[in-house]
């Protein structure tokens, strides 16, 4: 890299449910690749994006790859900042216990503040 040693804050904003569109899977793949560049990476889950982290996904019947276990690999990639919007969970009848990874739950406003602090926001 030309700017060796420069660490920027990257936030991946995930707002789509996992199987209806390709956004969630595409985001996850870019996140895994980004881990190779030693940047300050965080993931935010808003709106239907919180469904990506729902426990108990069984995709055999729709003949799709179940990529939800991969979120549990993120820790091994040193991606530990996962933020979930509380309002999004509430609106969907979910709580933190429904999610398959450890996350930080925060309000929309807190999330908006974090978003402002990023150098780069990647929208999915």
């Amino acid at each position: 890299m030309s700017e060796e040693g420069v660490v920027k804050k990257f936030m991946f904003v995930n707002r789509k449910a996992p199987y209806g569109t390709i956004y969630a899977l595409e985001s996850l793949e870019v996140v895994l690749i980004s881990a190779a560049f030693d940047q300050d990476v965080s993931l935010a889950f808003l709106d239907d994006g919180v469904f990506q982290l729902k426990k108990g996904q069984q995709t055999k019947g729709i003949e799709n790859k179940n990529f939800s276990p991969t979120y549990r690999a993120l820790d091994g990639y040193d991606i530990e900042k996962l933020y979930v919007e509380k309002e999004a969970l509430d609106a969907r009848g979910l709580t933190e216990d429904d999610l398959l990874v450890d996350v930080t739950v925060m309000s929309s406003a807190e999330l908006g503040k974090l978003m402002e602090e990023q150098d780069v926001v990647l929208s999915f």
């Binding site: 904003v13 707002r15 789509k16 956004y23 978003m115 402002e116 990023q118 150098d119 780069v120 926001v121 929208s123 999915f124």
Partner: peptide, 8 residues
């Protein structure tokens, strides 16, 4: 602006 979020 410092950064940008697209609400797709």
């Amino acid at each position: 602006n410092k950064n940008c979020q697209s609400w797709l």
